[in-house]
């Protein structure tokens, strides 16, 4: 979808930067998102159309430039384009069975970074976030406190959390109270 009048858009989370040395929590810039579903036999065609190979292994992500595909399930990916390049027109031309649904506004991205990032997320996320269990590039749908999130490790000390729009305030406030603890200890 082409960006219309920029001033019209009111993201769920404004960019409240946390000024802590051990961890920073900030709203990610708006981006394009597609909820992609495809059976195994369609993956090659869909990958070609997207220009990103859809990862086939659990917890894996694949990126090409600003476009990334996150494995969420055996036939499910969340595809992000952080440069604002449309994905749906190319996918519409794929004959192989798949489902591509625009969810750009459904989700909100939150970037948690700094050496305390994993600890802050572990305040509400029950998964093992050590580098061996959750390597750089790993992604997973999981929980953060009382909400569902998609967690993606973009660097050793940097995670992207994707949650639904109306849960962003909760996620943000939980991460901030957790950061208060992690930064103080």
């Amino acid at each position: 979808m082409a960006e219309p009048i920029g001033t019209l858009r009111r993201p769920a989370l404004s960019d409240k930067r946390a000024a802590r040395d051990t961890v920073s929590i900030k709203a990610a810039d708006p981006c394009l998102r597609v909820a992609l579903r495809a059976p195994r036999e369609s993956v090659a065609a869909v990958s070609t159309a997207l220009g990103v190979a859809l990862p086939s292994r659990p917890k894996m992500s694949g990126s090409d430039g600003a476009r990334s595909a996150l494995w969420l399930g055996p036939d499910e990916w969340l595809v992000l384009d952080q440069a604002g390049n449309e994905m749906l027109p190319a996918l519409a031309k794929v004959d192989a069975f798949h489902s591509a649904v625009d969810v750009s506004h459904r989700n909100v991205g939150i970037i948690v970074s700094g050496r305390g990032a994993a600890d802050v997320i572990n305040a509400g996320c029950p998964q093992d976030l050590s580098l061996t269990a959750f390597h750089v590039g790993a992604c997973s749908r999981t929980l953060l406190g009382k909400i569902e999130i998609v967690l993606w490790r973009i660097a050793e000390d940097e995670f992207r959390i994707e949650c639904w729009r109306s849960f962003a305030d909760y996620a943000d406030s939980l991460l901030r109270v957790a950061a208060r603890d992690v930064s103080s200890s």
Partner: peptide, 17 residues
Amino acid sequence: YSRGDQFDPTRRTAIHP
């Protein structure tokens, strides 16, 4: 954390403000 804002998510629509 389950107290105040974190006790339960409060969901607001885009038009809430």
